[in-house]
Design a binder for these strands. Sequence first.
DNA 1: TCCCGACATTGATCCAGGTCAAGTTTTCCG
DNA 2: CGGAAAACTTGACCTGGATCAATGTCGGGA
Lengths: 248, 248
Amino acid sequence: MRPDDLPEVRRLPLFQKMEAANFDELVGKSYMQTFPAGLEMIRQGDPADFLHVMLEGAVELYAKWGGRECTMAVVRPVSTFILAACIKDAPYLMSARTLERSRIILIPSAGLREIFRRDTEFAVSVVTELAASFRSIVRNTKGLKLRNSRERVASYLLRQSRLLDDAPSYRLPVEKRLLASYLGMTPENLSRTIKTLEDHGVKVDGMRVIITDRKKLVDLAQPDTLIDGPDPDALGTGSSLPPVQRWA
Amino acid sequence: MRPDDLPEVRRLPLFQKMEAANFDELVGKSYMQTFPAGLEMIRQGDPADFLHVMLEGAVELYAKWGGRECTMAVVRPVSTFILAACIKDAPYLMSARTLERSRIILIPSAGLREIFRRDTEFAVSVVTELAASFRSIVRNTKGLKLRNSRERVASYLLRQSRLLDDAPSYRLPVEKRLLASYLGMTPENLSRTIKTLEDHGVKVDGMRVIITDRKKLVDLAQPDTLIDGPDPDALGTGSSLPPVQRWA
DNA sequence: TCCCGACATTGATCCAGGTCAAGTTTTCCG
DNA sequence: CGGAAAACTTGACCTGGATCAATGTCGGGA
C-alpha cells in the first residue's frame, strides 16, 4: 500500500470521524489489490467478505438475470462500495467488473461490524452513508418509473451540468453504452434520443456535451429536487454514475 | 395510546434489543395519531420530523413527478417507515397516503438520532434495517430493469406463494391497480397479462390467486434468489408490498 | 337493499422503444 | 503506424405496452 493512499482513505466521509486507533486497526486487517481492466472482480451471489475502497481506476456495478444484464452504477476514486452487503453479512446483489486497471483496498467486513459497535462516530458515518445510498437509489427508481427515456436522458445531461455550477460544456464520465444501460435503454435508442435533443437545448458530440439552450432543456427535463438533487445523498455509492468533469 | 400497543412496537426488530430506558424515552416523546382513509399524510419534499410506526391500517408510499405518480410500497402493521429520511434529517422522497383508516405512532427523528449515539444495540438494529431496505430496493430495481412486465407479474405471483411455504392459493394483499403501479405497468396491461398467464400455471380470480401448475410458472418466472429472495431483507420497508395471507 | 363511484376487464388503436442489420468512427495494441 | 476489435450511428422494421373508450363488476354508505 502506498504511503500517500491512506490519508485519502481517511478523508472519506465514512472514515473521517472515527477514532484513529480504530482506523488503524481496520487498515491493519485490510490489503490492497490491483486488478487488470475488464475483470469480473465480484460475482453476484458470493458472500460479501470485504468492503471495497476504490483508490484508482473505475468499476462498473451491474446486475445479471437470465441472459440479460444492466449497469447499476459506476464507481470512481476515492469512494467505497457494497457497504450494505458487508453490514448485513449477506451475499452481493450485484456483480462488479473493472473498466480500467484499478487499485482497490479490501477491508474485512467482520472488522467493520466489530468497530461499528464500539466507535460511535464511525457508526454515525456508516448509517449516514447507508441512508444516503438508500435515498440515492430511491431517486433512481423514481426516475425510471416516472420518466420516459427521453426525459431521463435530458435530465441526466442537465443534472451533470448542474453538478459543475451550470457549466455549459462537459465531458461524459462513461461510455454511452454504459450510460444507456444505466438509464434503462438500448445504445441505439440513446443515440437517436440524443439526436432529437439537439432541438431542445443540448448537443452531444462524442463524449462532449454542450448545453446550447438551458431554458429549453429545463423545460423538457423538468428537473426535480427530489429526483435530481441538488443531492447531498449522492455522495455515497447508492446508485449513480461518477460525477462529470468540466470540459478541459 | 392503548396499553397493548407498546409490546407490539417493542417487538419490532428495530426496537427489540435496545435498552428499556431508551425505548421508554423514545415512546415518551412520541404520540399516536389516527388518520382517516384516503388522506395524504406525508407530502414528498416535507422535512422528515417523525419516524412512523404503523399499528393498524394500511399506507401507500408513492412518488409524484409532473402529473404522474407511481406506487413505491405499501406498508401494513406492525412496521416502520421512512427511516432513511429521519436518519439523514432530510426531506421525504416519497408521499404517503392511507388506504384505510390507520393508527400510527410518530417518533421524533431527533430523538432517534440522539439515542442512536448512545445505545449500541439500537444502532445495530437501525443500520441493519437500513441495509435491508437498501437491498430490498436494489432487488426491486433489478426486477424493473431486467424483466419485462410479464416476467415481473409471474415472479411476483410466485414469490407470494413462496412466502407462504408454497401455498397453492392465496389472496392478493392489495388492489390490482396498486399492484400494477408497483410493478411499473398500467392496470389494463396487468389485466391482460394475468389472462395470458392462465396457460402458464397461475390463475387469478378477483383477489384470489391459484397456482395451477407450479413447474410451468417457475419456468416462466425464472425466480432468482438475488431478486426474489427468500429474502431476509424484505422485513423492513425497503420497497415491497405487504406479505400475502393464505386463502381462508 | 339499492345505488353510486371506484375498480376491473375488454377491445381497438397507436407509438415508444426494442431488435436486427449494415455501416462508420474511435480506440487500443502489436 | 496499421489493423482489428469495440463502440457508436443510422435505417428498417416490429412488438410490448400505453392510451382511449366502453362496459362490466364490486364494495361501501345512505
